[in-house]
Design a protein around this nucleic acid. Structure first.
Lengths: 339, 339
DNA sequence: TAGGACTACTGAACCGGTTCAGGTATAACA
DNA sequence: TGTTATACCTGAACCGGTTCAGTAGTCCTA
């Protein structure tokens, strides 16, 4: 079966390529009768227009790109990103866009090189990004490259946004966590964050501090890297030696660090939640299954991915920059805070 | 900055488009001097050839597709697939191919519709598939569509392969598990498999049975669906009422079901491993973190993904069908079998 | 010194769509 | 009745690469 083309359809129907094209794309310029004939024939032949020919003449690739930068061996351990991916993909599918995925190592240069290549080859019409960095060079780069993008987790701002993105109200989320701990009597807490280069981590730190101060609570901060060992080591360093004013609760920046924290407590012979409570800034099956199960802030990655993708779609077809605030996360209270 | 094209480069250099094209693609027909001039100018201008124009004239899209069919909300819970994805992506990147990802629900019709669309639009040059089904309609479909593909987890066969794929020696893996249990004194075991519609599950069941029989062990089989609840329920049904000849060990088809099994044991007041041992047919962080930690067969998804992608790449550029056997998996002995 | 082989290069066709600038035929209007 | 608007349709240009057939020019050989 030789590959059909639009010229083939046109010949079969005795009309011009142009008419076939108009009919297929729902554009004016053809009668309803002709349109139906074209559509019926296309269906009968199971024919679809060539995506590359279409991409070439429309100067639009019909795909959006997403770069995941992480150690390949650890990628499976981040359920948050997978949920995000799922949400993104379903939204894109509805908008008839394809998702082009690239995984690179943790070197930021690789991510940037990918964008340059994509823009140069016009392989994607837009890009989805995460994790706004301190002095993030990517928005400027993408602007220079002329690649539309959406940044999931953009900083909150007042006034018109310089680019499209989703924002999270860290003050509310922080308050949810800190209030929960305060209510349970904790007055000295620790916060083991993710890397400071992520803007959202800086903001969380500031918000936790502010909220705790409002309650008259003391906060110790540690920087982690989202790995299990980081949570473990932070807890050991915080609680390894018995001191007078040891913290009674630890907030950890993600689920893996929370698991590490639990392991550390067990090693140190400290009971959770009786001696030390644990809260994870990200929920997952790990938090549910751990013993004790871990109280966690439940974001909704699938929904968030969906929203981010929708922002990109609307940016691509109407060019409007938008910022969308994510709803506040719920805290799922579990055993690790004595709930 | 107006977009450069190959015609633009040609004009700047005072040569023809054809020469520029030959130079860029490393083809004969240009002198080394000219080639260098072209390459240098391209680099200086940060110019890349348009992927869609290239795709159109080469009749190759430069992308391979992969359909993930799963409930979007559960996708994050399957670390195996994420590892696979990572391996695939890195191999594809090295072969200068892009990965097009599509997530669909669990309805098989959606997966097939995606392949039809991709083939019709010539959007991907090939496809990666998983989980060979009983009477799997997909290979025939893809053959009809003329879409090259690699099936990760193809059945083992003698004689020439009808398509490219990776195979796993289930007999060896089964023996690894069963021997491990036999050595620890278990004589009555249960095997909670994944859905029977997956060929590899059927094969695992048969291999476990055979191996157990060789040892004079009794096996009870249950069908699960890889979800936590399935592992839980299977264990409850197996061990809910005290019986004379209750099984003393349970093999579960994946990590989630193993977690469910542990929960069930806890509920039933049975100790692991003293009363009942647990083995997972898939390793993950869950197995490591559970208490007791779970003995698991450790496959290497990143490597497997890489191999599958390499098979596809070589199929695409030389057209040779190949079958590659995956190395035997190692058993990571942990507490759940008393190790 | 004519002939053949080889190298370096070019013009034009081609890939398969989209879209613009007309061209008819029919309907609507004055 | 002539003019104009409208609906439907078409030929050809275009998107930006690849590739084929052909042309010069150079070198080697007999």
């Amino acid at each position: 079966m030789a590959k059909e083309t639009i010229a083939g359809l046109a010949k079969r129907l005795g009309i011009s390529k142009a008419s076939v094209s108009y009919a297929l794309n729902g554009q004016p310029g053809v009668s309803e009768v002709t349109r139906r004939r074209v559509l019926d024939l296309a269906e009968e032949l199971e024919w679809y227009p060539s995506s590359s020919a279409r991409a070439l003449s429309r100067s639009r690739s019909g795909a959006v790109g997403m770069v995941l930068s992480a150690d390949p061996d650890l990628i499976g351990t981040e359920p948050y990103y997978m949920g995000l991916l799922a949400g993104i993909e379903t939204a894109l599918a509805e908008g008839d866009m394809a998702l082009m995925l690239r995984m690179v190592g943790t070197d930021p240069a690789q991510e940037r090189a990918t964008y340059e290549r994509w823009a140069g080859e016009r392989k994607v019409d837009g890009v989805l990004m995460f994790d706004h960095l301190h002095e993030d060079p990517r928005p400027a780069l993408l602007d220079r490259l002329g690649l539309p993008f959406v940044l999931h987790g953009a900083p909150e701002r007042h006034g018109p946004a310089p680019f499209s993105g989703t924002t999270t109200d860290h003050a509310v989320d922080s308050a949810t966590i800190v209030n929960h701990l305060h209510l349970r009597g904790h007055r000295r807490i620790a916060h083991v964050s993710g890397p400071h280069r992520f803007l959202h981590e800086e903001q969380r730190i500031a918000c936790v501090r502010r909220r705790a101060a409002a309650h008259g609570m003391a906060v110790v901060t540690r920087e982690g890297n989202y790995a299990l060992a980081a949570g473990h080591d932070a807890v050991v360093s915080l609680l390894g030696e018995p001191v007078e004013d040891a913290v009674t609760a630890v907030i950890l920046g993600n689920d893996l660090m929370s698991m590490g924290a639990l392991l550390a407590l067990r090693e140190l012979g400290l009971r959770c939640p009786e001696d030390v409570a644990i809260v994870s800034w990200d929920d997952s099956l790990h938090c549910q299954l751990a013993s004790p199960s871990v109280t966690a802030l439940s974001r909704n990655p699938v929904m968030q991915g969906r929203v981010a993708a929708e922002l990109l779609l609307s940016l691509l077809d109407s060019g409007t920059l938008q910022t969308r605030a994510m709803p506040a996360s719920d805290l799922v209270a579990r055993s690790s805070t004595g709930s």
